[in-house]
């Protein structure tokens, strides 16, 4: 158990431990759906919903789930909520549903959700887990919104469908192409690291590997050796 205040648990996900820009989790939806600002928000909110619900249920069940089969249990819980949001979105927001496409189903394997379940919800109280889920969800949504805005404004010359004078005459289409996604995310991470005045995350080694929570210690040791090229 840690002794941080509720406010700390809520606010840490927004900037300090922003899941995309600082811990580098959930990169796939961040890059894929952010061609429009509205898609970014939609994806962010859908992920936040799943994150809050799964954190809630997992922290309720943390004593009931046997440790050895916890990951399949978590995945089933998460997949259940993903199916729910899939239905809701299909019913009420069919346009957004078709824009997000397969990435809506892929929320199931979004490493942010599994990562928070493993690192936080399985060790903390229900209330704190919900706060953590909310904070991380807001951080994720904001990042997606910023990414989407930058790419939409530069790539299509409009923002939420409103045309921006001059820019809409000369849209830089490259920004809504895949290459633009990688580029904008790289720049955003660099800017955030600069603002926070610290080195950007290095995605090398187990500590920062998004899947580290899934590996056993034995595998981690092997992994480190492989990365170092000694095997």
């Amino acid at each position: 158990m840690n002794e941080h205040s509720n406010w700390y648990e809520f606010s840490k996900g927004i900037i300090r431990e922003n899941p995309n820009l600082v811990t580098l989790l959930g990169m796939c939806p961040t890059l894929a759906v952010t061609t429009l600002a509205s898609n970014g928000i939609g994806m962010g909110l859908a992920t936040m919903f799943v994150l809050v619900c799964s954190n809630f249920v997992i922290s309720l069940l943390k004593n009931a789930i046997p440790k050895s089969v916890r990951l399949p249990c978590y995945i089933v819980i998460i997949a259940g909520f993903v199916t729910l949001i899939d239905f809701l979105m299909k019913g009420y927001l069919p346009k957004l549903h078709s824009a997000l496409g397969v990435f809506l189903s892929l929320i199931t394997v979004n490493c942010i959700i599994l990562g928070r379940a493993e690192a936080f919800a399985s060790k903390n109280t229900v209330f704190k887990s919900v706060l953590d889920g909310l904070g991380m969800g807001i951080g994720f949504t904001l990042t997606l919104f910023f990414m989407g805005s930058i790419r939409e404004i530069l790539g299509t010359g409009s923002w939420f469908g409103f045309e921006i004078p001059w820019l809409s005459d000369h849209p830089m289409t490259i920004f809504i192409m895949p290459a633009g996604g990688f580029f904008v995310l790289g720049i955003l991470i660099a800017v955030v690291s600069k603002l926070k005045d610290r080195k950007p995350p290095k995605e090398i080694g187990c500590a920062s590997c998004p899947n580290a929570s899934v590996c056993s210690d034995e595998q981690k040791a092997e992994c480190t050796e492989k990365e170092a090229g000694t095997v």
Binding site: L24, A179, F182, F183, G186, I189, K199, P200, E203
Partner: peptide, 12 residues
């Protein structure tokens, strides 16, 4: 830019 950002820009 060292670390992740340079990697992402290379990926671009």
């Amino acid at each position: 830019f060292s670390g992740a950002p340079s990697t992402l820009i290379a990926a671009a």
